[in-house]
């Protein structure tokens, strides 16, 4: 059955995923059985009772209570079996253990922001330790999004007016894809994230010191990486084409016309302000939709973005 599992389902990231797969494969085989039963019966009848001559007599049987009961009660018993198996699995996995590590998630068009209990914040990337339960407590700042981690077989909508939760205990280290599964507009399909499952020591180090790359990568390269991973690229192009936001090409040191009629020169301070307090100065011809990155970027990361934007001239 392993070939079928790996054909139909993504890699397993938790014990729950492997329980899930067992139920999934059970329903698959059951469905295959019933499909073949129906197809074979239909095929056999079509061939066996094909019309040989126009006036061929046909059977006069028109009903049978015994048959009706058989094909009512057997399917009923089967679906009730599936119902209870599935419900049991669902209930067993619905409440997070009390000692789960909590991470706050804020979804907005079109990025995922995470905040740890120690105040560490990240965007579109989250690190968690292997073998420990983690609980994501989620809310949205705009429309409905949905937090979907295929390798964990879990998904939960993220709403603007309440907190929803999703938890799991990862069992394999490495990168797990996070997707947005509830349609949320133009860049819905780019609203992706990475969940890094680290061993305990690596995780603790990361939590205290941040990404290796953040500390050592050359500024310009780091800026380019952040431009992609922190979601700037969903609104800003770097080739001059207009998106939801202005292209970042030829911005640095240029004159920028603002919505209030003033003109400013885009120096490093202006760029910094645009990132941390985007509503302070609105570029002429654009909506004030850029989310603030206050607290979501480390000092060196802001410098890196400025450096990257400067390099786009």
């Amino acid at each position: 059955m392993n070939w079928l599992r790996s054909l139909l389902l993504p890699a397993q990231g938790s014990a729950y995923a492997s329980e899930y797969d067992t139920l999934f494969l059970f329903i698959t085989l059951l469905s295959a059985f019933f499909f073949l039963l129906i197809a074979a019966t239909a095929g056999w009848f079509v061939w066996r009772y094909r019309r040989a001559r126009e006036q061929a007599p046909t059977s006069m049987v028109t009903q049978s209570l015994a048959l009706e009961l058989t094909w009512t009660l057997i399917p009923l018993a089967i679906v009730m079996g599936i119902f209870f198996w599935s419900l049991n699995q669902y209930v067993g996995a619905s409440v997070a253990p009390g000692d789960a590590m909590e991470i706050q998630v804020t979804a907005k068009k079109w990025l995922w922001a995470f905040e740890y209990q120690n105040g560490t914040r990240t965007v579109n990337e989250v690190h968690i330790p292997v073998g420990k339960p983690v609980k994501f407590v989620m809310s949205s700042e705009d429309v409905i999004h949905s937090f979907f981690v295929p390798s964990m077989r879990l998904k939960q909508d993220v709403l603007p007016n309440r907190y929803t939760e999703l938890w799991f205990t990862p069992t394999t280290t490495g990168m797990h894809t996070l997707l947005c599964a509830e349609y949320c507009g133009r860049s819905h399909s780019d609203m992706l994230g990475k969940i890094w499952v680290d061993d305990d020591a690596t995780f603790q180090k990361w939590l205290e010191e941040g990404d290796e790359s953040t500390r050592t990568m050359p500024l310009k390269e780091l800026g380019k990486m952040l431009y992609e991973s922190r979601g700037c690229s969903t609104c800003h192009s770097i080739d001059g084409t207009r998106g939801d936001g202005p292209s970042l090409r030829n911005v640095f040191a240029h004159d920028i016309k603002l919505a209030d009629g003033k003109t400013v020169i885009a120096d490093a301070n202006y760029i910094r302000e645009s990132i941390l307090e985007p509503q302070a100065k609105i570029v002429l011809g654009y909506e004030p939709i850029m989310p603030t990155f206050q607290g979501l970027l480390r000092e060196r990361e802001i410098l890196a973005l400025i450096e990257f934007i400067r390099s786009l001239n």
């Binding site: 999934f24 329903i27 059951l30 599935s86 996995a93 949905s146 998904k155």
Partner: peptide
Amino acid sequence: FAIGGLTGLFLGSIATDVHLHDT
């Protein structure tokens, strides 16, 4: 229709639907 109905089992079943919903 048989395939349509049988794949409905995956979606009516609450645990399996969680992964498959909106895919």
